[in-house]
Protein backbone atom coordinates (compact mmCIF):
# COMPACT_ATOMS: atom_id res chain seq x y z
CA UNK A 1 0.00 0.00 0.00
CA UNK A 2 1.27 3.46 -0.84
CA UNK A 3 1.64 6.23 1.70
CA UNK A 4 -1.56 6.85 3.65
CA UNK A 5 -3.46 10.10 3.09
CA UNK A 6 -3.76 10.67 6.81
CA UNK A 7 -1.42 9.32 9.41
CA UNK A 8 -2.00 10.04 13.08
CA UNK A 9 0.60 8.95 15.63
CA UNK A 10 0.21 8.99 19.41
CA UNK A 11 -2.09 12.05 19.27
CA UNK A 12 -2.88 13.62 22.61
CA UNK A 13 -5.36 16.44 23.23
CA UNK A 14 -5.80 18.12 26.60
CA UNK A 15 -8.25 20.59 28.02
CA UNK A 16 -6.89 22.88 30.69
CA UNK A 17 -9.55 23.57 33.29
CA UNK A 18 -9.61 25.00 36.78
CA UNK A 19 -9.76 21.51 38.23
CA UNK A 20 -6.72 20.31 36.34
CA UNK A 21 -5.79 18.97 32.92
CA UNK A 22 -8.33 16.68 31.26
CA UNK A 23 -6.98 14.23 28.69
CA UNK A 24 -9.64 14.08 25.98
CA UNK A 25 -7.42 12.13 23.58
CA UNK A 26 -4.63 10.03 24.99
CA UNK A 27 -2.31 8.38 22.51
CA UNK A 28 -4.42 7.75 19.43
CA UNK A 29 -2.80 6.34 16.28
CA UNK A 30 -4.40 5.41 12.96
CA UNK A 31 -3.96 5.72 9.19
CA UNK A 32 -6.45 6.32 6.42
CA UNK A 33 -5.49 5.27 2.86
CA UNK A 34 -6.58 6.92 -0.36
CA UNK A 35 -10.22 6.17 -1.09
CA UNK A 36 -10.68 4.44 2.23
CA UNK A 37 -13.48 5.09 4.70
CA UNK A 38 -12.47 4.82 8.34
CA UNK A 39 -15.38 4.67 10.73
CA UNK A 40 -14.80 6.00 14.23
CA UNK A 41 -17.32 4.82 16.80
CA UNK A 42 -17.77 5.16 20.51
CA UNK A 43 -20.05 6.59 23.15
CA UNK A 44 -20.52 10.31 23.65
CA UNK A 45 -17.37 11.74 25.16
CA UNK A 46 -15.12 8.93 23.91
CA UNK A 47 -13.13 11.50 21.91
CA UNK A 48 -14.43 10.80 18.40
CA UNK A 49 -15.26 14.40 17.49
CA UNK A 50 -12.24 15.82 19.27
CA UNK A 51 -10.02 13.56 17.15
CA UNK A 52 -11.65 14.98 14.00
CA UNK A 53 -11.27 18.55 15.23
CA UNK A 54 -7.63 17.93 16.13
CA UNK A 55 -6.82 16.61 12.67
CA UNK A 56 -8.27 19.70 10.99
CA UNK A 57 -6.72 22.03 13.57
CA UNK A 58 -9.93 23.36 15.09
CA UNK A 59 -9.29 22.64 18.76
CA UNK A 60 -10.28 25.84 20.54
CA UNK A 61 -8.76 27.01 23.81
CA UNK A 62 -8.75 25.84 26.55
CA UNK A 63 -8.10 22.69 24.50
CA UNK A 64 -4.72 22.05 22.91
CA UNK A 65 -2.81 19.37 21.08
CA UNK A 66 -0.41 18.13 23.74
CA UNK A 67 1.61 15.69 21.71
CA UNK A 68 1.87 13.31 18.80
CA UNK A 69 1.91 13.86 15.06
CA UNK A 70 -0.63 14.37 12.32
CA UNK A 71 0.62 13.84 8.79
CA UNK A 72 -1.36 14.62 5.66
CA UNK A 73 0.10 13.09 2.51
CA UNK A 74 3.40 12.70 4.38
CA UNK A 75 3.53 16.37 5.43
CA UNK A 76 3.30 17.16 9.11
CA UNK A 77 0.37 19.51 9.74
CA UNK A 78 -0.11 19.59 13.51
CA UNK A 79 2.67 22.15 13.98
CA UNK A 80 1.82 24.49 11.08
CA UNK A 81 1.29 28.21 11.69
CA UNK A 82 -2.38 29.26 11.98
CA UNK A 83 -2.24 30.85 8.52
CA UNK A 84 -0.63 27.79 6.90
CA UNK A 85 -3.18 25.53 8.63
CA UNK A 86 -6.00 27.74 7.35
CA UNK A 87 -4.78 27.05 3.81
CA UNK A 88 -4.94 23.32 4.52
CA UNK A 89 -8.51 23.54 5.82
CA UNK A 90 -11.04 23.41 3.05
CA UNK A 91 -8.29 22.99 0.46
CA UNK A 92 -6.84 19.62 1.48
CA UNK A 93 -9.18 18.57 4.31
CA UNK A 94 -12.91 19.10 4.08
CA UNK A 95 -15.19 18.82 7.05
CA UNK A 96 -18.89 18.00 7.32
CA UNK A 97 -20.74 18.90 10.47
CA UNK A 98 -23.55 17.17 12.27
CA UNK A 99 -26.44 19.59 11.94
CA UNK A 100 -27.08 20.94 8.45
CA UNK A 101 -29.65 23.37 9.87
CA UNK A 102 -26.97 25.31 11.74
CA UNK A 103 -23.93 24.71 9.53
CA UNK A 104 -24.93 27.23 6.86
CA UNK A 105 -24.92 30.97 7.38
CA UNK A 106 -28.63 31.88 7.22
CA UNK A 107 -28.06 35.35 5.76
CA UNK A 108 -26.19 34.40 2.58
CA UNK A 109 -27.34 32.59 -0.52
CA UNK A 110 -26.05 29.05 -0.94
CA UNK A 111 -24.21 30.17 -4.07
CA UNK A 112 -22.49 33.04 -2.26
CA UNK A 113 -21.14 30.63 0.36
CA UNK A 114 -19.96 28.19 -2.31
CA UNK A 115 -18.34 30.87 -4.48
CA UNK A 116 -16.63 32.38 -1.45
CA UNK A 117 -15.13 29.01 -0.51
CA UNK A 118 -14.10 28.19 -4.09
CA UNK A 119 -12.43 31.57 -4.52
CA UNK A 120 -10.62 31.21 -1.19
CA UNK A 121 -8.80 28.17 -2.53
CA UNK A 122 -8.57 28.77 -6.28
CA UNK A 123 -7.96 31.64 -8.69
CA UNK A 124 -11.27 31.21 -10.49
CA UNK A 125 -13.13 34.32 -11.67
CA UNK A 126 -16.59 35.09 -10.35
CA UNK A 127 -18.20 33.46 -13.37
CA UNK A 128 -15.85 30.48 -13.20
CA UNK A 129 -16.47 29.96 -9.50
CA UNK A 130 -20.23 30.15 -10.05
CA UNK A 131 -20.01 27.57 -12.81
CA UNK A 132 -18.02 25.30 -10.52
CA UNK A 133 -20.54 25.85 -7.71
CA UNK A 134 -23.38 24.73 -9.99
CA UNK A 135 -21.36 21.64 -10.97
CA UNK A 136 -20.79 20.84 -7.29
CA UNK A 137 -24.48 21.17 -6.46
CA UNK A 138 -25.31 18.90 -9.38
CA UNK A 139 -22.70 16.41 -8.21
CA UNK A 140 -24.17 16.13 -4.72
CA UNK A 141 -27.59 15.52 -6.25
CA UNK A 142 -29.42 18.82 -5.93
CA UNK A 143 -32.06 19.11 -8.66
CA UNK A 144 -32.12 22.24 -10.85
CA UNK A 145 -28.82 23.56 -9.44
CA UNK A 146 -28.81 26.62 -11.77
CA UNK A 147 -31.90 27.81 -9.95
CA UNK A 148 -31.23 26.50 -6.45
CA UNK A 149 -27.83 28.18 -6.30
CA UNK A 150 -29.58 31.50 -5.64
CA UNK A 151 -31.68 30.09 -2.81
CA UNK A 152 -31.13 30.82 0.85
CA UNK A 153 -30.42 27.95 3.28
CA UNK A 154 -33.88 28.19 4.85
CA UNK A 155 -35.41 27.36 1.47
CA UNK A 156 -33.77 23.90 1.52
CA UNK A 157 -34.90 20.81 3.42
CA UNK A 158 -32.61 19.18 5.98
CA UNK A 159 -31.30 16.53 3.60
CA UNK A 160 -30.80 19.06 0.82
CA UNK A 161 -28.92 21.33 3.21
CA UNK A 162 -26.62 18.48 4.17
CA UNK A 163 -25.95 17.99 0.44
CA UNK A 164 -25.03 21.68 0.24
CA UNK A 165 -22.74 21.22 3.25
CA UNK A 166 -21.07 18.30 1.47
CA UNK A 167 -20.71 20.41 -1.69
CA UNK A 168 -19.02 23.10 0.43
CA UNK A 169 -16.61 20.53 1.85
CA UNK A 170 -15.82 19.34 -1.70
CA UNK A 171 -15.10 22.83 -3.13
CA UNK A 172 -11.36 22.36 -3.49
CA UNK A 173 -11.38 18.57 -4.05
CA UNK A 174 -9.78 17.73 -0.69
CA UNK A 175 -7.71 14.56 -0.16
CA UNK A 176 -9.52 13.88 3.13
CA UNK A 177 -13.03 14.50 4.35
CA UNK A 178 -13.87 14.41 8.04
CA UNK A 179 -17.57 13.72 8.46
CA UNK A 180 -18.62 14.37 12.06
CA UNK A 181 -21.94 12.60 12.67
CA UNK A 182 -23.16 13.61 9.18
CA UNK A 183 -26.45 11.75 9.42
CA UNK A 184 -27.38 12.02 13.09
CA UNK A 185 -29.66 15.02 12.64
CA UNK A 186 -31.43 13.62 9.58
CA UNK A 187 -34.49 11.45 8.98
CA UNK A 188 -33.70 7.77 8.53
CA UNK A 189 -34.71 7.74 4.84
CA UNK A 190 -32.51 10.76 4.17
CA UNK A 191 -29.63 9.22 6.15
CA UNK A 192 -29.33 6.41 3.62
CA UNK A 193 -29.18 8.89 0.74
CA UNK A 194 -26.45 10.95 2.38
CA UNK A 195 -24.44 7.82 3.21
CA UNK A 196 -24.60 6.52 -0.33
CA UNK A 197 -23.65 9.98 -1.59
CA UNK A 198 -20.57 10.01 0.65
CA UNK A 199 -19.62 6.51 -0.49
CA UNK A 200 -20.00 7.45 -4.15
CA UNK A 201 -17.93 10.63 -3.76
CA UNK A 202 -15.18 8.75 -1.92
CA UNK A 203 -15.10 6.13 -4.66
CA UNK A 204 -15.17 8.54 -7.62
CA UNK A 205 -12.60 11.04 -6.31
CA UNK A 206 -10.43 8.67 -4.29
CA UNK A 207 -11.09 10.83 -1.26
CA UNK A 208 -10.20 9.37 2.11
CA UNK A 209 -13.08 9.71 4.57
CA UNK A 210 -12.99 9.75 8.34
CA UNK A 211 -16.57 9.00 9.38
CA UNK A 212 -17.30 9.84 12.99
CA UNK A 213 -20.56 8.40 14.27
CA UNK A 214 -22.14 6.47 17.08
CA UNK A 215 -24.38 4.62 14.64
CA UNK A 216 -23.00 1.10 14.06
CA UNK A 217 -25.45 0.58 11.21
CA UNK A 218 -23.92 3.47 9.29
CA UNK A 219 -20.42 2.14 9.99
CA UNK A 220 -21.25 -1.41 8.88
CA UNK A 221 -22.70 -0.09 5.64
CA UNK A 222 -20.10 2.53 4.81
CA UNK A 223 -16.73 1.97 6.40
CA UNK A 224 -13.82 -0.13 5.15
CA UNK A 225 -12.18 -0.14 8.54
CA UNK A 226 -13.47 0.85 11.94
CA UNK A 227 -11.87 2.26 15.07
CA UNK A 228 -13.68 1.74 18.37
CA UNK A 229 -12.86 4.51 20.83
CA UNK A 230 -13.18 4.43 24.58
CA UNK A 231 -12.12 7.14 27.04
CA UNK A 232 -9.96 8.97 24.54
CA UNK A 233 -8.14 5.86 23.29
CA UNK A 234 -8.63 3.42 20.46
CA UNK A 235 -9.72 0.12 22.00
CA UNK A 236 -9.74 -1.78 18.73
CA UNK A 237 -9.20 -1.00 15.08
CA UNK A 238 -9.50 -3.28 12.09
CA UNK A 239 -11.44 -4.18 8.94
CA UNK A 240 -15.11 -3.48 9.45
CA UNK A 241 -16.31 -7.02 8.79
CA UNK A 242 -13.93 -8.56 11.34
CA UNK A 243 -14.52 -5.97 14.02
CA UNK A 244 -18.29 -6.15 13.69
CA UNK A 245 -18.54 -9.92 13.45
CA UNK A 246 -15.67 -11.07 15.64
CA UNK A 247 -14.70 -8.21 17.92
CA UNK A 248 -11.75 -8.90 20.21
CA UNK A 249 -11.75 -6.13 22.78
CA UNK A 250 -14.28 -6.79 25.57
CA UNK A 251 -15.70 -3.28 25.08
CA UNK A 252 -16.08 -3.80 21.33
CA UNK A 253 -17.81 -7.12 22.06
CA UNK A 254 -20.23 -5.38 24.35
CA UNK A 255 -20.81 -2.64 21.79
CA UNK A 256 -21.58 -5.09 18.98
CA UNK A 257 -23.76 -7.18 21.31
CA UNK A 258 -25.87 -4.13 22.00
CA UNK A 259 -26.98 -3.77 18.37
CA UNK A 260 -30.54 -5.05 17.87
CA UNK A 261 -31.17 -7.15 14.80
CA UNK A 262 -34.44 -8.13 13.13
CA UNK A 263 -33.59 -11.85 13.00
CA UNK A 264 -33.07 -12.05 16.73
CA UNK A 265 -35.48 -14.42 18.42
CA UNK A 266 -37.52 -13.04 21.26
CA UNK A 267 -35.48 -15.07 23.76
CA UNK A 268 -32.27 -13.31 22.81
CA UNK A 269 -31.82 -10.27 24.88
CA UNK A 270 -29.59 -7.36 23.97
CA UNK A 271 -26.33 -7.43 25.82
CA UNK A 272 -25.69 -4.52 28.10
CA UNK A 273 -22.33 -3.33 29.33
CA UNK A 274 -22.66 -2.67 33.06
CA UNK A 275 -21.75 0.81 34.30
CA UNK A 276 -20.90 3.79 32.14
CA UNK A 277 -17.83 5.33 30.58
CA UNK A 278 -15.80 7.29 33.17
CA UNK A 279 -15.73 11.06 33.03
CA UNK A 280 -12.54 12.64 31.70
CA UNK A 281 -11.68 13.81 35.20
CA UNK A 282 -11.88 10.26 36.62
CA UNK A 283 -10.25 7.93 34.11
CA UNK A 284 -8.92 4.95 36.11
CA UNK A 285 -5.27 3.90 35.87
CA UNK A 286 -4.27 0.98 33.69
CA UNK A 287 -6.92 0.06 31.15
CA UNK A 288 -9.76 2.61 31.33
CA UNK A 289 -12.30 -0.16 30.71
CA UNK A 290 -11.19 -2.50 33.51
CA UNK A 291 -13.88 -1.51 36.10
CA UNK A 292 -16.56 -2.62 33.62
CA UNK A 293 -14.68 -5.54 32.10
CA UNK A 294 -15.75 -9.10 33.02
CA UNK A 295 -12.25 -10.44 32.22
CA UNK A 296 -10.24 -7.91 34.19
CA UNK A 297 -7.49 -9.14 36.50
CA UNK A 298 -5.01 -7.26 38.67
CA UNK A 299 -2.72 -6.39 35.75
CA UNK A 300 -5.54 -4.45 34.02
CA UNK A 301 -5.80 -1.91 36.82
CA UNK A 302 -2.02 -1.47 36.87
CA UNK A 303 -0.60 -1.51 33.33
CA UNK A 304 -1.95 0.50 30.50
CA UNK A 305 -2.44 -1.89 27.55
CA UNK A 306 -0.64 -0.93 24.33
CA UNK A 307 -2.22 -1.79 20.99
CA UNK A 308 -1.32 -5.33 19.93
CA UNK A 309 -1.57 -6.67 16.39
CA UNK A 310 -3.84 -9.70 16.47
CA UNK A 311 -4.76 -11.15 13.07
CA UNK A 312 -6.08 -8.13 11.18
CA UNK A 313 -7.10 -6.26 14.31
CA UNK A 314 -5.09 -3.95 16.49
CA UNK A 315 -6.44 -4.27 19.97
CA UNK A 316 -5.46 -2.56 23.22
CA UNK A 317 -6.14 -5.38 25.68
CA UNK A 318 -3.89 -7.54 27.85
CA UNK A 319 -5.96 -10.62 26.96
CA UNK A 320 -4.16 -10.76 23.63
CA UNK A 321 -0.66 -10.22 25.01
CA UNK A 322 1.26 -13.28 23.84
CA UNK A 323 4.08 -12.46 26.26
CA UNK A 324 1.82 -12.73 29.28
CA UNK A 325 1.42 -16.42 30.15
CA UNK A 326 -1.46 -15.66 32.53
CA UNK A 327 -3.54 -13.86 29.90
CA UNK A 328 -4.89 -17.07 28.37
CA UNK A 329 -6.30 -18.15 31.71
CA UNK A 330 -8.51 -15.09 31.83
CA UNK A 331 -9.60 -15.65 28.24
CA UNK A 332 -11.60 -18.69 29.30
CA UNK A 333 -14.57 -16.56 30.15
CA UNK A 334 -14.66 -15.02 26.72
CA UNK A 335 -17.60 -17.09 25.57
CA UNK A 336 -19.62 -16.45 28.65
CA UNK A 337 -22.07 -13.61 28.15
CA UNK A 338 -20.95 -10.29 29.58
CA UNK A 339 -24.16 -9.70 31.39
CA UNK A 340 -27.61 -10.02 30.04
CA UNK A 341 -30.32 -7.52 30.53
CA UNK A 342 -33.37 -6.16 28.86
CA UNK A 343 -32.67 -3.44 26.39
CA UNK A 344 -34.63 -0.41 27.41
Amino acid sequence: MSEPVLSVRDLRVEFVTRRGILKAIDGVSFDIAKGEVLGVVGESGAGKSVTGSAVIGLIDPPGRIAGGEVRLGGQRIDNLSPEAMRRVRGKRIGMIFQDPLTSLNPLYRVGEQLVETIQTHTNLSNAGARKRAIELLAEVGIPAPERRIDGYPHEFSGGMRQRVVIALALCAEPELIIADEPTTALDVSVQAQIISLLKRLGREHGTAIMLVTHDMGVIAETADRVAVMYSGRIAEIGPVRQVVQTPLHPYAKGLMGAIPTLVQSSDDRLVQIPGSMPRLSAIPPGCPFHPRCPHAWDRCSRDRPDPIQHAEHRVACHLYDANDPTAKAHMIHTHAPLEEGVAS
Partner: peptide
Protein backbone atom coordinates in the same frame (compact mmCIF):
# COMPACT_ATOMS: atom_id res chain seq x y z
CA UNK B 1 -19.57 30.28 18.76
CA UNK B 2 -22.17 29.18 16.21
CA UNK B 3 -21.78 26.15 13.97
CA UNK B 4 -21.77 28.13 10.74
CA UNK B 5 -18.79 30.16 11.91
CA UNK B 6 -17.01 26.92 12.88
CA UNK B 7 -17.93 25.46 9.49
CA UNK B 8 -16.60 28.59 7.75
CA UNK B 9 -13.33 28.15 9.65
CA UNK B 10 -13.27 24.47 8.69
CA UNK B 11 -13.50 25.58 5.02
CA UNK B 12 -10.39 27.73 5.43
CA UNK B 13 -12.18 31.06 5.06
CA UNK B 14 -9.77 33.76 6.32
CA UNK B 15 -10.50 35.23 9.76
CA UNK B 16 -11.03 38.71 8.33
CA UNK B 17 -13.81 37.46 6.07
CA UNK B 18 -15.36 35.40 8.87
CA UNK B 19 -15.39 38.38 11.23
CA UNK B 20 -16.69 41.04 8.91
CA UNK B 21 -18.84 39.04 6.49
CA UNK B 22 -20.21 36.04 8.34
CA UNK B 23 -20.21 37.19 11.95
CA UNK B 24 -20.88 40.92 11.71
CA UNK B 25 -24.00 40.67 9.59
CA UNK B 26 -25.52 38.08 11.90
Amino acid sequence: RTEYVRFARARGIPDRVIHFRHALRN
